[in-house]
Amino acid sequence: MSQGGKITVEEMRYISIIQDLTGALVYRCLDRGDGQIICVVKKGDAGKVIGRRGSTIRMLRELLKKDIDVVEYSEDLVEMVKNLFPNVKIKNVKVVKRNDSTIVVIHVPEEDKGRAIGRGGRVINRARLVLRELFDVSKVIVK
């Protein structure tokens, strides 16, 4: 994983609980501050956190009193972007480096724009948070 924000004590607690209860390798648990945490797990471990018919994730939500989003990690920035938009057809992802900042431009079909942004910006904001923390991306744009 590349640079990013520091892991808080609360995040460490979430990581520890989720790993202990599921056996999944958890890289980060990012608290959105709105009652949601984004759990970034090793590729292939999302199923362990979700469980059969969602039973494990329901138990975790109850235990932590938080809504939990699960995203599989990839060291490859473009692959990570695709993991953050699972129900969106992505035409291509452009990574632009300018000065000290990294900008990610995601091209999606017009009919998928709403899905890429999400209700109230939920999906795009999740992507911005994860990419900022894990890849030091300063801006995420959907076109």
Results as ranks from 00 to 15, higher is better:
Gly44Thr: 06
Ile50Asn: 08
Asp69Asn: 14
Leu84Gly: 09
Lys91Arg: 10
Glu72Gln: 08
Cys39Pro: 14
Arg13Asn: 14
Arg28Cys: 10
Asp67Trp: 04
Asn83Gly: 09
Tyr14Trp: 14
Lys43Pro: 04
Lys82Val: 11
Glu62Arg: 15
Ile18His: 10
Arg61Cys: 11
Val70Glu: 13
Leu77His: 13
Ile15Trp: 01
Lys42Ser: 10
Val78Tyr: 02
Leu25Cys: 01
Gly5Leu: 12
Val78Ala: 00
Leu77Ile: 15
Glu11Asn: 05
Ser16Gly: 08
Asn87Phe: 04
Asp31Cys: 10
Cys29Leu: 13
Lys48Met: 05
Tyr73Phe: 07
Leu30Ala: 00
Asn92Ser: 07
Val78Gly: 09
Ile68Lys: 10
Arg13Phe: 03
Ser55Phe: 04
Pro86Ile: 04
Glu11Ala: 12
Met59Ser: 15
Ile38Arg: 11
Glu75Gln: 13
Cys29Gly: 11
Gly54Ile: 15
Lys48Cys: 03
Cys29Thr: 13
Ala46Val: 03
Leu63Thr: 09
Lys91Cys: 01
Leu64Asn: 14
Gly23Asn: 12
Asp67Cys: 03
Val78Phe: 01
Glu11Thr: 07
Leu64Asp: 14
Ile7Val: 10
Glu79Asn: 09
Asp69Lys: 11
Lys6Gly: 12
Val9Asn: 09
Phe85Cys: 08
Ser16Val: 04
Gln36Ala: 14
Glu11Arg: 05
Ile90Cys: 00
